[in-house]
Amino acid sequence: MPYWLMKSEPDEFSIHDLQRLRTARWDGVRNYQARNFMRAMAEGDLFLFYHSSCPEPGVAGIGRIENGPFPDPTALDPKSPYHSSKATADNNPWVARDVSFIETFPHVIPLTRLRELDALADFSLTQKGSRLSVMPVTDAQWHAILACR
């Protein structure tokens, strides 16, 4: 089973929000490579929920992909911060996914800790300048991160 990492700013949408809602739409991705990863996901795939752009960025829990990709409605909404002026109802390049809650970790596994792990030396998340909001996670990387919780 492929694994993924998906980033969200906890002030906007956190693992605790997903826990409360149980299922939610993951939208607003506006990077083509991250979008392609979202298209590659399969129903049932698991992902690490990563809190980004906050005082202590890190892995906060686990979620599951619930369905196939569908057009991201925020791209068409002029009031949305994720509005895309080039997207139309007939040609919307952006996708969203429904995700569900699996687990909240007792403590966020901080990025500083992840960078210390030899098993994550080649993981794009731990590389300087990595800004992708969605990325694949290998089986070895998944297990190395889960061992930290």
Rank of each mutant, 00 (worst) to 15 (best):
E66H: 01
A140F: 03
P106N: 05
S124R: 06
S84A: 14
Y82K: 11
V108W: 11
Y32H: 12
S53F: 08
R22W: 02
D98G: 03
L48A: 02
T138G: 05
D45K: 12
E12N: 06
T23E: 08
T23W: 04
N91Y: 10
E116R: 07
F37E: 01
D27T: 05
E9M: 06
F13T: 00
R22S: 09
S130W: 02
N92H: 10
D122Y: 02
R149T: 07
R35W: 06
K7N: 13
F49Q: 03
E9T: 09
C54V: 14
P57D: 03
T88P: 10
F13S: 00
E56M: 11
G28S: 08
Y32P: 05
T74D: 15
L18Y: 04
D118A: 12
V99F: 05
H83Q: 05
S133K: 01
E103I: 00
A40W: 00
Y3T: 11
A42Y: 14
P81G: 08
K128R: 15
I62L: 12
D90T: 13
E9H: 09
V29Y: 05
I15Q: 03
H107N: 15
R39D: 01
M38D: 12
N31R: 09
L48H: 03
N36L: 02
M38W: 08
P110V: 01
D139N: 14
D17S: 10
Q19S: 06
I145M: 14
S130I: 00
G61T: 05
T88Q: 13
R113T: 11
F37D: 03
G44C: 13
F101G: 00
P136W: 01
I109R: 03
T112M: 13
A89F: 06
V29M: 05
A87T: 08
P73Q: 15
K7M: 03
A87E: 04
R131L: 03
D17F: 11
G61F: 00
F47K: 09
P55E: 14
L117G: 09
R97A: 01
V29D: 04
T74L: 13
A147H: 12
D122A: 10
K79N: 10
P71S: 13
N67Y: 07
L132Y: 04
M1H: 15
T104Q: 09
V99R: 01
W26K: 00
N31F: 10
L117T: 04
I109Y: 05
V134R: 02
Y50S: 06
T74C: 06
L132V: 01
P55N: 07
L146V: 08
T126V: 11
V59P: 00
D17L: 01
W142C: 04
S85Y: 04
S14H: 04
Q141A: 11
R115F: 00
E66L: 12
V108T: 07
R64Q: 13
H83M: 01
S130M: 04
I109F: 13
G63W: 02
A87S: 12
V134L: 00
S100E: 04
N92S: 07
P2G: 14
I145V: 15
L46V: 03
R20N: 06
Q141D: 08
L114S: 08
I102Q: 07
